[in-house]
Each structure stands twice: as structure tokens, then as C-alpha cells.
Design a protein around this nucleic acid. Sequence first.
DNA 1: AAATAATCTTAAACAAGTTTAAGAATCAGG
DNA 2: CCTGATTCTTAAACTTGTTTAAGATTATTT
Lengths: 199, 199
Amino acid sequence: MNTQNLPVAALIKFFEQYFPLNMAERKEVAARFTERSVKRRGFILQQGDVAKYFTFVVSGCFRQYVIDETGKEYNLQFAIENDWITDLCSFYSETASNTYVEALEPSVILQIKHEDLLYLYTHYHKFDRNFRIIVEKKYIDLQNRVMQNISVTAENRYSNFMTRYPNLAYRLPNIQIASYLGITPEFLSKVRKKIVRPA
Amino acid sequence: MNTQNLPVAALIKFFEQYFPLNMAERKEVAARFTERSVKRRGFILQQGDVAKYFTFVVSGCFRQYVIDETGKEYNLQFAIENDWITDLCSFYSETASNTYVEALEPSVILQIKHEDLLYLYTHYHKFDRNFRIIVEKKYIDLQNRVMQNISVTAENRYSNFMTRYPNLAYRLPNIQIASYLGITPEFLSKVRKKIVRPA
DNA sequence: AAATAATCTTAAACAAGTTTAAGAATCAGG
DNA sequence: CCTGATTCTTAAACTTGTTTAAGATTATTT
């Protein structure tokens, strides 16, 4: 099995940030994750579907969002290379999702089915651990975001976002950033103007 | 070892929601968690400290909060019986916390040190799994909160909070709820009035 | 390269939420 | 059960962010 230069090499490298994988574990990764290309605006999850996969982003960019009764969209998260995305709630409870996961760029992903991930959890201690760590890191990020949402003005949330996620931020249209920060694109425009040419 | 009626029995019961514990695992739980009583307004974590413990709440109620430059407090989370609380970021990175964790009621807790939890992770697969599940559930809650923060008015956030966490909500002063929802107590008062006697 | 779609900006009128201040009600602790 | 401290309410003036609408700019697709 030659996994060099393949998307699965990126995934193995990701896991090995935490702990080296033995040969059996590498084989399982190669066997149980499925590669897939997604074009811009393609969906890997839509409202009403059960999230069947946990997705590792090899290249490209995704957003998860919800749509309210009035048709407005709200971005819950972005994921670029080396990040993970799914609707965790739907994935683990195997119930219909309220969310969409859409590619913002042409992307390459590796997906694992719920049952295969459970298999890995049960047979290889290390994957319980790896996914514990993945979710812990995401939890910490999310808590930081909640903190900002309840304590920081839109202007500062925008500045902080740009400094914290510069790679991500400069790839995203402002309209997507506004939706993530919980403000309108019009107000973001105002904020940006103010930052460039402060009163 | 008789653990009936003891706080540690509550903790074992908590873990056994997910998977039964064998005798060795129960012994480790009894041995590695330390019981502690905390009086109202007592702190188990303060800004500048490293969070040395992961805390299971046997009885009582805690809040985690931050204080900004102007001295205002913002509640990041509450934890009542059968919930867990710490500053995850500080706990895992072993760096100083920006947050406080304070008892809102006289409380009884069980705490495990970072090194002891790592010991459990390493020697007992089940604890990696249990803590993966604990954090996943907390992540899902937090994502739901972010969604509300960016898409729902203060009035509806309050209503949703009251229906979603009634047990918790009716134990908390409104001032604490306001701080969690990201609004002022004065505005919450307005909102409550409107809900009782709609215009 | 043209056509279409999506994004960005501006501004005026509006709505949601904050600030300040002060009095009333409730609660915790000795 | 008394007392000080905390919490809750109200209201007026203010600030932050939204809505609507329209034109300008930039990307994407054909």
C-alpha cells in the first residue's frame, strides 16, 4: 500500500500530529475513509438528511449553516484543509439535520461512515483518543466564539476574526464572514470602512 | 469498598449511562477523584490560575465567566448536578486561565487532576471514550448556543433558554441568565415584562 | 468576451439593545 | 429575625446594528 501523495497521506499526517499510527491503524484509515471531490456550491449535507459521514477536508473550503423561517442563512462553522466537518448532533444521534454543509471552493475530502467510525472507536483505542482531542479543540474554539458573541462589539469581533483566522478570512467573501459573526453584510461594510479610515 | 450513597456513586452512575464499568475501573474512579465541598461564592478556578482539575458536580451549581477590561462579567457556562466543568483550554494546555469558576450554591464536587485523568486515558480505553462523549455533548450544546446568538433576538433566546433548561433557569438569578444570553439585566427585565403582558 | 449572477457599498429610516440613575423587592448570613 | 447586600424594575436618552433600496464592482459561467 503506497499512500504517499494521496489524500489519505494528509489524513495520516493529521492523526500523527497527536500519536504515531501503527501499520494496522494506517491500513484501517486507508480502508475505511472514502475519497471524494466536491465542486463549488456542492452539498455534502442538506437539511432533512441524516449526517452519515464525518468529513476530513484535504483541500478546499466548506461552511455549515442553518436557514431560518424568513430564509436567512447563518454560518455555524467553516472548515478548510486539515479540519473536520459534519453535523455532530445528526451524526451521533442518527436523526435529521437542520443544517447544510456546502463547498465554498472546489474541494477534496475523505469521509468515514458512522458505523466505520464506531468500528475504529471499538477496536482501536487511539481513535477514541484522537476524536476526543479533535472535539476538545473544536469545543475550545467554539467557547471562545461564544465569549466574543456575548461580550464584544461587531467591529471587534470582525477584527479578532481577521487576526485569528487570516488564512481563512482572506479566502472568504465578506458576506460569509458577516453571517458567521452574526451581523448583516451592510453593517460589515460600514465596520470595514471605519477600520480602514477611522473617524 | 462501599460506594453506596457516596458522591462517588453518583459519578459511577454517570459513567454507566454510557457503558458499564468493571471493578478495576470503579476502583480507579474511587481512587483518583477527590471529594470537596464548596460554599456559595467559593471559587474553584480564578483568572491567572492553571485549571488543575476536571470537576464533576455532585450537587449545587457553578458558573464559568470572564471579566472584560471594563469589569463586566460574561457567563460562559453553568453546571449543575451530573455535569462537568473546568476551563478546558487551560486544563489541557496547562496555561493560565482567563476565566473564573464560582459556586452559585453550596456545592459538592468530585475532582480529578490532569495527570490522573491522563493516567485513566492511557490505561483504560473507556475513559478516552467517556470523555469523548462528554465533550461531544457539550460541543453540540455550545453550537446550538452559537446558532441562537447569531440568529435569534434576545427575547427568543430567553424563551428558548427557559424551555430548554427549566431546572437550571428557575434556580438562577436573572442577572446570571442575562449575562449568559449576552444582554443587560435591564433589558432582560423589559423582555420578561413583555412576555408576561404582551403588548 | 459577453452575459449573468453574486458581492459590496452607501444612505436614510428604523428597531433592538445599552446606559445611567434611582427606588423597590428579595435574599443570605450573622 | 434583622441587616446589609444583591437583585429586580422602570424610564429616558443614547448607541449599535437592521432594513430597504439602489447603484457599482467583481466573479463565474457560457
